[in-house]
Amino acid sequence: MNNELSYTIEEVAQLLKVSKLTIYDLVKKGELPVFRVGRQMRMHAKDLEDYITQKKSTISHPPVVFAEKATSTKESSQIVISGQDMVLDILGRHLEKATTKKILRSHAGSLNGLISMYKGECDIVSVHMYDGDTGEYNLPYIKKILTGFPYVLVNLLCRKAGFYVQAGNPLNVQSWEDLKRKDITIMNREKGSGARILLDEHLRLCNISTREVAGYENEESNHLSVASAVSTGAVDIGIGMEKAAKLVGVDFIPLIRERYDLVLLKTNENAHFVNEVMNILTSKSFQSEINAIGDYDTSQTGSIMYETF
C-alpha cells in the first residue's frame, strides 16, 4: 500500500460501511490514528489497513466459533457473511432482525470466501467470478470448489465493473488491450478477489502476459483503495466496480456487467435460515434500500441462478 495515501473521515466511514460518528468515536478512543491538514482530519491508508487486519484476526475469524459452525450451524448464534460490498451490511441488518442472530462480516474475496465455506467457516459467501471460457459468472468455480456439497446460488444484484482512470481519461484508456501499453501502470487487487479473477481471465483471453502489464504486482485489498491510488496519481488504472469510482471521484470505464451472487449451503439444519435470506432478498423493503444507493441493478435480486438437488 502506498504510505502517502490517506483518507478523510468520510472516506473511512464509507470504506468501513459505518457512520462518521462511529469513526469519530474510534478516533477519540485512540483506536484509529489520525493527523490534521488544516482543520481536516485524515488517516494514513497503512494505519487503516492495520486496523482492519487486527479486527479481522480478532473478530471476523474466531477459530472456536468456526469449529462449532462446521459441526452444527443450527446451534450457532452467529452468521458469517463473506464479501466487501456495502449491500452485504444491509443484508446483515435485515437478517439480525429476522433471526435475532449476531452477524459477523468477513471481507475475504470471492474465491477465498468459497474456500472458507468449504471449511465450514462461513454461512453466506458473495461471489463475482468471471469465467473467460464460458462467459459465465460464478457457477464454473463453485462447482469445482463445493463438490459434494448441496447449495443454492441466488442473485444479490448486478453491477458494472471496469477501469478506474484519472479525471478526463487523459491516457484515452478504452479496453483490456490497453493494459499492455508501456505508458500505463495499474493497481491490482489481491489474489482470490473477483476483480483479480476478472483481470486475469481477460489477460488470458487477450493473450497478454502478466509480465507485459506494468504494476501487475501492485495489490490493494478493496475497491476504494484501488480507486484512491488512481485518484492520487500513484497509478493510471485500477480494476473495480462503478460505485467506488463515484465515491472517490475518479472516472469509470465500464467493461462488463457482472452478476454478484450469494452462495448458501443447503442442509436440514439451516433450511429455515435459507428461507429467511430468500424472503429478505425478494422483499420490497430490501430492494428499495439497494436501489436508493444507486448504480445497482436489482432486476434479478432473489432469483435462484442454480440449485443442487
Rank of each mutant, 00 (worst) to 15 (best):
K143T: 12
S60F: 02
H128C: 00
I115E: 06
Y130K: 06
M41E: 14
L48M: 12
A108K: 14
D89C: 08
K143S: 13
I23K: 14
L104C: 07
D47I: 04
R93Y: 12
L139A: 10
H44M: 03
L114Y: 10
T100F: 01
S106P: 02
A70Q: 13
S106C: 04
Y24L: 15
K29H: 12
G83E: 09
V27K: 02
S57R: 14
V127N: 00
G38A: 04
A70Y: 02
N112L: 14
I142V: 13
A67Q: 12
G132P: 11
R36G: 01
K119Q: 15
L111K: 07
G113F: 03
L26Q: 13
L48W: 09
K55Q: 04
V27H: 09
Q78G: 11
F66P: 00
G132F: 08
H128E: 10
R105Q: 03
K55E: 02
K74Y: 10
I142Q: 08
S110R: 08
N112M: 13
I79D: 07
R42K: 15
S82I: 05
I115N: 15
D50L: 10
R93E: 00
L88W: 05
K69M: 14
R93V: 03
S82F: 03
R42E: 12
C122Y: 06
I142G: 06
H128S: 12
C122T: 06
E68A: 09
G120Q: 11
V37W: 05
K101M: 02
I145N: 07
G30T: 10
D25C: 07
A98P: 09
V125A: 12
S60I: 05
L88G: 06
S76A: 14
F35W: 12
Q78I: 05
L48Y: 09
K55P: 12
A70C: 01
T99I: 07
F35H: 14
K144L: 08
S82D: 11
G38H: 05
V125M: 01
G135F: 09
D47H: 11
E49M: 08
A98W: 03
L114K: 02
R93W: 01
V80C: 03
L32C: 03
S126T: 12
N138M: 10
G135C: 09
S116Q: 15
H107F: 07
L32W: 05
C122A: 06
H107N: 15
G132V: 09
Y137W: 15
M43T: 05
K144Q: 14
K97F: 01
I124L: 11
K56G: 08
V80T: 13
I59R: 08
T22C: 08
P140E: 06
N112R: 11
G132C: 02
K69A: 13
P63Q: 10
A108Q: 15
L88P: 03
S106V: 04
S60W: 02
K28H: 15
P62G: 06
Q40H: 08
G113T: 11
K143W: 05
T73I: 13
N138H: 11
T22I: 02
K46I: 15
R39P: 11
N112D: 14
V64I: 12
A108T: 10
D47A: 13
K102D: 02
R93F: 02
